[in-house]
Design a protein around this nucleic acid. Structure first.
Length: 222
DNA sequence: GGCCAGGACACCA
DNA sequence: TGGTGTCATGGC
């Protein structure tokens, strides 16, 4: 079994996901930070608050006091921490790139990734989401769903690190922005919808490839 | 009322 | 390098 086969199954089942659900690269970055460990619906409320207060531009966020920002993003959870994280990013953008996001995102992928990871509050997944969905760089975004689905299928250990899983995925897929965009979105869709509980394989399009299904197929009535 | 959601960081050994 | 606690809201 290869990862491209898995992709084709997911795409056949769910179709295009049209990610990232945001209107501008800046909105991608803000929502990528807001969505850390939180339901997307909560992020949408926070984004809506920012829009209503006309605060969803780097210039406006730069001037907005951290306490006010925290109140606006309260629905997204961890709102004090996330206000700090957003401020850390905005301050970096203004200090290092004079507020010019396009210039920042135009850098080579490796350099930009290192720069993003150096900003407080941006870890590997957030950095890669920004690289892929805001900067259109060909990098595979790993998240909890990726690890859960692939380890449940027996492809990797559930103990695998972020970097190892990313290398595993990128080693067997063409380096395509379009593919990586859709693949990550499909894994999230599948993870949310089906592969949440352990005996997911009763409804899972990947059932026959899934180690859990193979171990329990008789008990599952197949 | 408990559990979980599209993580990251601080602190410790 | 790895384990644990912390950050916090909202839906089910």
């Amino acid at each position: 079994m290869d990862l491209f086969w898995v992709y084709k199954q997911l795409f056949a089942r769910y179709g295009p996901q049209h990610w990232w659900p945001a209107e501008t690269p800046f909105e991608v970055i803000v929502s990528a930070i807001l969505t850390q460990s939180v339901n997307w619906q909560n992020v949408e409320r926070a984004i809506e608050n920012l829009k209503q207060h006309n605060a969803l531009t780097s210039g406006r966020l730069y001037k907005l006091p951290e306490e006010e920002l925290a109140e606006l993003i309260r629905p997204a959870g961890y709102f004090r921490q996330k206000a700090k994280k957003l401020k850390a990013f905005i301050n970096h953008l203004h200090l290092e790139h004079n507020g010019d996001l396009s210039r920042m995102l135009a850098q080579p992928m490796k350099k930009l990734r290192a720069e993003l990871l150096s900003i407080w509050g941006i870890g590997p997944e957030t950095a890669d989401s920004i690289l892929l969905y805001a900067a259109q760089k060909p990098i595979f975004v790993v998240d909890a769903y990726t690890k859960r689905i692939f380890s449940r299928m027996g492809l990797v250990s559930s103990e695998i690190s972020y970097d190892e899983l990313q290398r595993f995925c990128m080693a067997q897929l063409p380096k395509s922005v379009k593919l990586f965009n859709e693949y990550h979105a499909l894994l999230v869709r599948h993870g949310k919808e089906v592969c949440r509980s352990k005996p997911c394989c009763l409804r899972c399009v990947l059932a026959r490839e899934c180690q859990f299904w193979r171990r329990n197929s008789s008990a599952l009535g197949r």
